[in-house]
Design a protein around this nucleic acid. Structure first.
Lengths: 358, 358
DNA sequence: CATCCTTACTTAACCGTTTCAGTACCTCTG
DNA sequence: CAGAGGTACTGAAACGGTTAAGTAAGGATG
């Protein structure tokens, strides 16, 4: 039992397929009598005709499909994304795509073959790539002559649109906030620090803040790994051996909540013994206890802008778009001031605790 | 600059498109000389030929696409899924689809029009529907002659495959566990209790357990709404006015963590003052503090089985598949026994606290 | 009354691919 | 040396739709 095609409708209505196509697509350059028009519509409805978008895209060279590439937590792991961050982003991408008549073709980076394969094969109209990948795979994107939006990756390539936040400033503000609370031993827990990734930028912000306060980044206070709850816990367990660490900057909320959990398991109280700072402001940050002081970013805005940028490009706007959304400090309960006021620092007055960056 | 098609390759290699198709698809029913074969392959590679899957699906009547419908939290809200449950499920669906050569076409229920439209238009090979919908929309699914898998919905329709867990038993075990800990005032916080939904089944389990213990469901202890952190918090705030409630069964972890948060905000300690029981065992359950005692379900298995079931059906296996995965009690830190041992109950001995259901 | 313009269609080509049904040539067989 | 069989291809139709170009009929124009 085949689906009904335009031919079936044409035969039943006693007209040509062309006429059916004209009627159903409401082509105004062609006049069709209202009687024929009515009859075609009636027959199409009665027979349950639905156009085959794949066939249509053959002639129109347009699929109304947007490819989404989301990284796997770890290659070979079953889960594409453990981090609720991706769920939130995907939600926004889907919502905005659909309201503009597009659909999402979802894929992780294909194991073995190029992760762009899908996009090429399916002929998606545009592609959104989330996270950073080896630049070799970006090279392949050039071969596709479709709009490409990169979310959360740092590349200088002029042919890609980019969407992100000011990660470096986020790292800077977060660390400055901890410093302003009197912390001097600040650990940094993050995902892998790759060349084009956001983690590197957040690290640079951390470094900048430390150095501005006359402190140095210390190797033994850096805990990089994967962006997961487990790694956060693991890092917390390890850093407990260093007594001079009074605060942890976790460069993702999912890491932050892991750190809190890990500290607890080691018998440390948060924030009384150790302060923890997150990044992202996922729901998670409010869910955990104590609620997480964190750097907020607008994930929904990122998803929305990604789709709009693709649509702009498809509309023929040639300009490269580069969106950088702001980050904001959200003060909650996981950070507290250390007892003695800061006096030894040149650049900071003891009462500087309240000069929050907005 | 058009993509190179099979015709371009054929012309360049000096053969017909048929030959190119035979070579590239390694059709063994047709003999091709190794010299021609080599040449065609070389030319195809050199020209960067990639087959157009849309065109292919026109003749093969197969798109290698699986449609996924995931509910919106609330109609009109920007977010399709706030609940990390869906992220986890989607991950598993994507992973298992891709390893079998399929891709996922993602969509929320289209506002206004039927949410099946996409599936019909795109000609997906199968469709996975997550959550429960009005049965009217299920009727439309009959018109599609493709395999349909329903996850987490209770329908008796023979033409759909179903995948779920034993929600009623989950509700029963959870409530029995709370009862075994001496709780008698047990509130029920859940999503909307619709006819075909999982929440109704979990409620029935709750009711069964109460009645087996000689207790009655009391209307004022039921808090239904949406499945969200916010609703959990709201319910907790409201139930604080009832002093005889010593435990809360939240029928989803995301609700459970909301309840914990809400109770805390009202100055109640968990579990010292009020015990909380969740459902799902998301990462969240370990992330929150106290970690949540909950009913575990295997989300990855659901996703995997959904894809396998679609593939089975596409392979021509005619049988309706109906998978019910087990639920397991996971004891963590959010439930504690109430002080006095239970003596007044006929069916329970005072020491029955340890007869955990495995 | 021949010409032109509308109106209301249809014909046919095309999108990129698959596949059935040839066809041409060569070699082997009886 | 006719016929059979194998090898190595090609032609053309088909999938479901779009669209440029053509056409036939009727009415208005000069």
């Amino acid at each position: 039992m085949r689906r009904v095609s335009i031919k079936d409708v044409a035969r039943e209505a006693g007209v040509s397929t062309t006429t059916v196509s004209y009627v159903l697509n409401e082509i105004t350059t062609q006049t069709i009598s209202s009687e024929t028009s009515r009859r075609v519509r009636e027959v199409a409805k009665r027979m349950g005709y639905v156009p085959n978008l794949n066939a249509r895209s053959l002639t129109s060279r347009k699929t109304n499909l947007i490819g989404i590439v989301i990284p796997q937590t770890e290659p070979g792991r079953e889960f594409m994304f453990d981090n609720p961050f991706y769920g939130a982003l995907l939600s926004s991408l889907e919502f905005n795509a659909r309201r503009n008549g597009y659909h999402l073709l979802l894929t992780g980076p294909a194991s073995g073959q190029s992760y762009i394969g899908v996009a090429r094969n399916r002929g998606v109209d545009g592609i959104v790539i989330v996270g950073s990948y080896p630049s070799s795979s970006l090279d392949e994107l050039h071969q596709l002559s479709i709009p490409v939006v990169l979310i959360d990756t740092y590349v200088t390539d002029e042919s890609f649109h980019t969407i992100g936040i000011n990660d470096r400033q986020g790292g800077l503000l977060a660390t400055e906030y901890l410093l302003s609370r009197g912390h001097r031993g600040i650990a940094f827990v993050s995902g892998g620090i790759s060349e084009h990734g956001v983690m590197r930028q957040r690290f640079l912000g951390y470094q900048e803040a430390l150095e501005a306060a006359g402190l140095q980044v210390r190797e033994e206070r850096l805990y990089t790994g994967e962006v997961s709850f487990q790694h956060g816990m693991q890092a917390a367990r390890e850093l407990c051996s260093q007594q001079d660490i009074t605060a942890v900057f976790a460069a993702a909320d999912i890491l932050g909540v892991g750190v809190v959990k890990g500290l607890r398991q080691q018998g440390r109280r948060v924030p009384e013994d150790v302060s923890v700072m997150g990044f992202d402001d996922l729901d998670l940050a409010q869910i955990c206890d104590p609620s997480l002081t964190t750097m907020r970013q607008d994930i929904a805005a990122k998803g929305r802008q990604a789709i709009l940028t693709i649509l702009d490009a498809l509309d023929g706007k040639p300009d490269k778009q580069e969106w950088i959304f702001p980050v904001d400090l959200v003060v909650r309960d996981s950070v507290r001031s250390v007892g003695r006021p800061v006096t030894a620092q040149k650049h900071r007055r003891p009462d500087s605790g309240e000069e929050l960056n907005e």
